[in-house]
Design a protein around this nucleic acid. Structure first.
Lengths: 191, 191
DNA sequence: CGTCTATTTGAATGTACTCAAAAGCGGTGG
DNA sequence: CCACCGCTTTTGAGTACATTCAAATAGACG
């Protein structure tokens, strides 16, 4: 729980009062999930977002051929969900699932909206969080367009070494937009 | 100006009071720009975001080889800027420039922050705006990973016909992550 | 252990790229 | 007005990065 408080304070750049945080934390509940548990499912309207206290998870997109494409990885201190569905209330197009046994703080949409509308600090927190997510994704996108697989992998190693350690290779490949065979060849060249 | 008000009301799903809107509009000023005017420049900290009242603009990333990659197009009713730099206050890595002679509403960062911190409705507006931008970009990203150039172009035609009309082909190609020659070949096949 | 999943390696293939050049379009000035 | 210039689009031929298909090896889990 204090992991979330730290995350909020780090994100907005100021401390929370105990009161503010405790008000917000009443909107959340803690829950443990087994490995491979589906947190969000394509075809369902996604009702929750999850803050990882322990463990790991990822979200992915399944294309028409049934191929899965990793969208986001979440380790401790990350939020994960199908944000498309959560924000738009529409049928989900992504899946999210745990990679390890995990403990999460869970926030449902009604509470998310109430918190945003009644706690300016929290509204701010989520605005900044999503701003950061947006600029990160935009950068990942332009690198996907402009750099080859080898350079993108090198960049991932540099910026997210924890992913390389904890996420299986075929998912890292998918995240980079290549096939597991290609990533294996890249790793072979650069030990 | 009323274009912005409509955009806000459409985005947050409720109307603004005249008072709220007029308070917010005091943070903005209107400005005309010639075609090819740089709105945000790589290497500079980006101080403004621009809401297009008339005309068009786009943002792009320049890679190590000097190749330009279109990141976003903006027509009337769109915001455009280097959001990475604007939000983070860091040296910009994107450029933004007008494609036609344009009129914009300009919002500087200090005013953006003041507006977000003093006008809950506006904070909400920008949070939802960026949420929408995020989910759109995420979808564009997974389609980049999972669909070939032809399918991505067909999708762009369907979802953003106005882009096809008003944006030069070499920029559309770049936006799709392909070369102008390739887009030309795709268009040749599918008239 | 045995089975299932993940990773590695090899060879052939394909989508989009590069290089190259021609044709089309648009604006500018003589 | 049209001739010219620069920029955009088209078309052709050869190429490359990553893919597909295939199979062997390695690793994880019950």
């Amino acid at each position: 729980m204090h992991l979330l408080r730290e995350n909020i304070e780090k994100t907005i750049g100021t401390s929370l009062t105990d009161d503010e945080f405790s008000t917000f934390s009443n909107f959340l509940f803690e829950k443990a999930f087994d490995k491979k548990h589906l947190l969000a499912e394509e075809g369902q309207v996604c009702q929750y977002i999850y803050f990882l206290l322990k463990g790991s998870a990822y979200s992915y997109y399944t294309d028409a051929e049934g191929e899965k494409h990793a969208v986001q990885f979440a380790l401790e201190d990350f939020w994960v969900s199908d944000l498309y569905s959560f924000f738009s209330k529409r049928t989900g197009i992504y899946n999210a699932e745990t990679l390890e046994n995990s403990r999460c703080l869970v926030l449902n949409r009604a509470n998310f909206e109430t918190a945003c509308n009644t706690l300016p600090t929290i509204n701010n927190y989520f605005r900044i969080l999503i701003q950061n997510a947006f600029v990160s994704l935009q950068y990942r996108f332009v690198r996907r367009q402009s750099a080859d697989a080898e350079a993108r992998y090198a960049e991932l190693m540099r910026t997210h070494p924890a992913f390389i350690q904890r996420i299986p290779q075929y998912l890292l490949a998918s995240y980079l937009g290549i096939k597991p065979q290609s990533l294996s060849r890249i790793r072979h060249k650069h030990p």
